[in-house]
Amino acid sequence: MTASLDRRTLLAAGAASLAVPAFAQKAAAPAWPTKTVRILVGFPGGSTPDLVARTIAEPLSKALSQPVIVENKPGAAGNIAADQVAKASDDHTLGVMINGNMTIAKLLNPATPYDPLKDLAPISLVGTAPLLLTAGTGVPFTNAQDFFAAARTAGNKWSYGSPGVGTVGHIGMELLKTKAGIDPVHVPYPGNPQVINAMIAGQIQLALLPPGLAAQQVRAGKLKAVGVTSSGRSSLVPEYPSLDEQGVTRGFQLEIWTAVAAPASLPKAVVAKLSALISEIARTPEVRQKLFAQGWQVAGTSSEGLANRIKQDTALLGDVIRTRGIKAE
């Protein structure tokens, strides 16, 4: 009897000893967040990334029961803010970034102080959008076939604008040049508004622009639309056919996107928590409507989904950078 009791006691004690470490681990796991969460944006207030950040900040604050504030740190095409996110060590700093900050920054400029593939943790791809190939009204054409025939004839007498060296508007056009056999000269501008003004004034002939921005000018009769850079029509501007469906650039697809990232040092459990929350927030009807109005097709992916997109775009755009010899100024 005593032996049996002793055996049961030992078994119970053994089970308890196995349970203690797991319980202790759970109890020791720090609650997150424990203070205000910062979202850094590498562009000025009112810019597209800024609007996205402010759209998700309020519902994220409610979900986390902590303040979430947006701080603008403009400069170097968003890379200044991206570098600050990469180097943040407080576990409470995030960033809303564009394609280039999370993919090709280091390829464009080896002196970039962070490596997007090593120093940033993908959280969620929030929104995507194709670009709209747009031309000035002085360019005569009735469809994409006519436009590209005229562009091939013009050669380097035509020029195209972008919001700067290394932007998707620049690299995407260099890719389009190889796909479509055209050769317009690149003219960089401070931003897309200046690109649009230059096209309206007849100083340049074409540009790849965010659809919401370009469509306003096309509908007003100030610019002409050639086609969107998606495989089919985009829900953002369904009235314009894609270049692919018009048969001029088979397989040519290009998107701009915005996403949430964190320092690579952020604990994986926190990354998983944020990824689930932000992807869910992005897909709610209210936030979806706001993002759509800002010109985004809502993605709301997992961290793994964003990581895959980063890998794909780094390969695609990186190949263009290498073959065309593009370097950041």
Rank of each mutant, 00 (worst) to 15 (best):
L208E: 03
A135G: 02
L291S: 13
A315N: 04
A15W: 15
K179E: 13
A88P: 14
A214Q: 01
F148V: 09
A13F: 12
V271M: 02
S235H: 00
L107N: 03
A299K: 15
A328Q: 04
T178P: 11
N156D: 15
Q297L: 14
I56M: 04
R283F: 11
T258F: 11
S302D: 08
G212S: 04
P211C: 00
A86E: 05
L120W: 10
A198R: 10
G161S: 12
G127M: 13
T167W: 09
P113R: 07
L132T: 05
V271S: 03
L206W: 01
S159V: 06
V185D: 04
L131I: 06
R8Q: 13
A269K: 07
D90K: 02
V271E: 04
G247P: 04
L94N: 05
L40K: 08
S265H: 03
Q289N: 13
K268S: 11
G318N: 00
Q297C: 10
D183T: 13
V185S: 04
G227W: 00
A214C: 00
V298F: 13
A264C: 09
F43D: 04
S242R: 00
G212M: 08
E174V: 08
S275I: 07
R152G: 09
G169M: 07
A111W: 12
P238R: 00
A86C: 05
G14W: 15
I256D: 15
L213V: 13
R233V: 06
V20R: 01
D319L: 07
V237Q: 01
A63D: 09
A86F: 07
V218H: 00
L120F: 05
Q253A: 14
G191M: 13
A22V: 14
G181T: 03
A12Y: 08
V271N: 03
P263T: 15
I204Y: 06
K35C: 03
A293R: 10
P267F: 11
R7Y: 12
D146L: 02
G138V: 02
P33N: 10
T323E: 09
R54K: 10
V287H: 07
L266V: 07
N99K: 00
Q289R: 10
T34Q: 05
G181W: 03
T137L: 00
D244E: 09
L40G: 05
D183W: 08
S230A: 09
I104C: 02
T323M: 06
S242M: 00
L277Y: 09
T128F: 06
D115P: 06
N109Y: 01
T323Y: 14
N197I: 12
D244G: 04
L317S: 06
L40W: 08
T36D: 10
L51S: 14
T55L: 01
R324M: 12
G155V: 04
S231T: 03
W296T: 01
V85Q: 11
S234G: 00
M102T: 06
A307M: 07
Q294I: 15
A262M: 09
P44E: 06
E71K: 01
N143R: 05
Q312G: 05
G95D: 08
T2E: 15
A201W: 13
D313Y: 08
T112W: 02
A220C: 06
N197Y: 09
K177I: 14
T2D: 13
T142D: 15
R283L: 12
G172K: 05
I98P: 09
E71F: 00
A31V: 08
D83Y: 14
